[in-house]
Nucleic acid binder design. Structure first.
Length: 491
RNA sequence: GGUACCAUGGCCGAGUGGCUAGGCAACGGUCUGCAAAACCGUCUACAGCAGUUCGAUUCUGCUUGGUACCUCCA
């Protein structure tokens, strides 16, 4: 690889030089959603973060296998491995088959991700489709002696594991500290130790989703699916495992423990965690009831929203913060992002048509911008820094357009490549207006109307020319009179 | 209570032991019939207190405030 990529590894708590296991190939596993409700703004963050990672890796020349799962079973409603299955509960409430719930919300999740320009993963496995693999994994852990059977359920023996391997190395926890603060939770009578976690749960009579197993009619524990599916599709050892910071403990810690016992090693080289989106400084989450769904954002229908925000504005908003920082939601911040995004897109469009001057001297800044953008992206995906340099490029493009400075073909090509390969390619920021199929028709109509206005202007009929401009504005078309004629954009 | 993390200008957000991002907003100017956009310029912040240092927003300690995880959550 020509460029060195550094990634922050949660396991070492440091930025590390990324070295793939197989040259030029990257295996990436990311924890996807539990599909029992609509995706909210919080879900957009890992979606976009790891999408940019995949795009960046590909841009750097790697072949990437990106596995992002759909959790459709085993994720319980309550604490301590008791309570209803999230999917099962929703199914009961809505009087649908669990798989209908899964289907509905999976499709809606896909649709939201598509609108955010998040590319589909290479493989999107479902937990319910890998019951056999999970049962095999439970057996393996039992055979290794790190699990026990209790009343039809199988639990991971955290104490025994801790003695040999140390439980808590990923999340930075010490088991003795945790012990001192163990709370009394209900429904733990089957466990030997409160931090033991379920690998297989015997289904209670009201539990809808269950499968036969050597131990009981039941269902797999939540942490199991990621271990089983990552191994199936990426092998015993793979490069990167990503997910939200809230999954660090217990989910990823348990996953690591399962891997260590069944594979003889943690299996993951780089653990990456995106931070949370907050609202009024507080984490946006389902349990807190302070979340805004992506659909509501796109429509502007939530009571906290002043207006609708386009998917790309949201993408830009998320990219303007580093993925490991919390990001606070507010209308002001989103509106700022919307404007910044539009400015960036306008420049990406304008670079195509700006006039070159062959004998113009090279603009030194162009090469610097290019270098700085790559450096930022390769420094643990510092998208805010990359964007700040890209705005320097925007400034140059606008200056050339205003004929304040001149540009030669070589510099223009560099800027064009930045806009094309980085802004659109890696950051995935694309113009949204082109979604309309009848683009040509609109173009033609607007041109006609503008011709009319031109005539009015020639006759100094300002009233008419202003009316045309105002009327167009009212339907969302903004006119701009420039030295070279009239331009227009759809708002 | 335990373990982490954070506190940056009107807002959002990077980053650094000295050269002090960027976006949005605001103000002044250029352009324009008027707008809009763009361009030029202005606005110089790093919670408080002590310490280390020639020098700290950046390191250390303390104080205050906040957040996350410890139970489901992206």
């Amino acid at each position: 690889m020509a460029r060195e990529l550094y990634l922050y590894n949660t396991l070492s708590r440091k930025k590390e030089l990324f070295k793939p296991i197989h040259p030029n190939m990257v295996g990436l596993y990311v924890c996807g959603p539990t599909v029992y409700g609509d995706a909210h703004l919080g879900h957009a963050r890992p979606g976009i973060t790891y999408d940019v990672l995949v795009r960046l890796l590909k841009h750097l020349g790697y072949k990437v296998r990106y596995v992002r799962n759909i959790t459709d079973v085993g994720h319980l409603e309550n604490d301590a491995d008791v309570g209803e299955d999230k999917i099962g509960k929703k199914a009961r409430l809505e009087q649908l088959e669990p798989m209908e719930i899964v289907q509905i919300y999976t499709l809606r999740y896909h649709d939201a991700m598509r609108r955010l320009n998040v590319a589909s993963p290479s493989i999107e496995p479902r937990a319910s489709g890998h019951i056999i693999e999970q049962i095999a994994l439970v057996q393996k852990i039992l055979d290794a002696g790190y699990a026990y059977l209790s009343n039809g359920s199988v639990y991971f023996d955290v104490k025994k594991y801790d003695k040999k391997y140390k439980y808590g190395i990923l999340s930075g926890r010490v088991i003795d500290d945790m012990l001192a603060n163990t709370r009394n939770l209900d429904g733990q009578q089957d466990k030997h130790f409160s931090y033991d976690f379920a690998l297989w749960k015997k289904a209670s009579p009201e539990h809808i989703m269950h499968w036969p197993s050597p131990w009981s009619e039941g269902f797999p524990g939540w942490h199991l699916e990621c271990s089983a599916m990552s191994e199936k599709y990426l092998g015993e050892e793979f490069d990167i495992h990503g997910g939200g910071m809230d999954l660090l403990f217990p989910h990823h810690e348990c996953e690591l423990a399962q891997n260590t016992v069944s594979r003889g090693k943690g299996g993951v080289h780089y653990w990456m965690h995106n931070n949370m989106i907050t609202i009024n400084g507080q984490k946006m989450g389902k349990s807190l009831g302070n979340f805004i769904t992506l659909e509501e954002l796109f429509n502007g229908t939530h009571k906290l929203l002043d207006q609708a925000y386009s998917p790309m504005s949201i993408r830009f908003f998320i990219l303007q913060a580093h993925y490991r920082s919390t990001l606070d939601f507010s209308n002001d911040a989103l509106q700022a992002s919307e404007k910044g995004f539009k400015r960036m897109m306008q420049a990406a469009k304008d670079i195509k048509t700006i006039i070159v001057k062959e004998d113009a001297p090279a603009i030194n800044e162009v090469a610097e911008i290019e270098k700085n953008v790559y450096d930022a992206l390769c420094d643990d995906m510092n998208t805010p820094i990359a964007l700040s340099y890209l705005f320097d490029a925007v400034k140059i493009i606008n200056s050339v357009k205003d004929k304040n400075i001149f540009i030669n073909a070589k510099d223009k090509a560099k800027l064009d490549s930045l806009m094309e390969n980085i802004v659109k390619g890696v950051l995935g920021l694309v113009d949204e207006q082109t979604e309309v199929g009848s683009e040509k028709l609109i173009d033609g109509l607007v041109e006609m109307i503008i011709d009319n206005r031109k005539e009015a202007k020639a006759n100094k009929d300002w009233a008419k020319s202003d009316k045309i401009r105002d009327d167009l504005k009212a339907i969302g078309i903004q006119i701009k009179d420039t030295k070279d004629g009239c331009e227009w954009t759809i708002e």
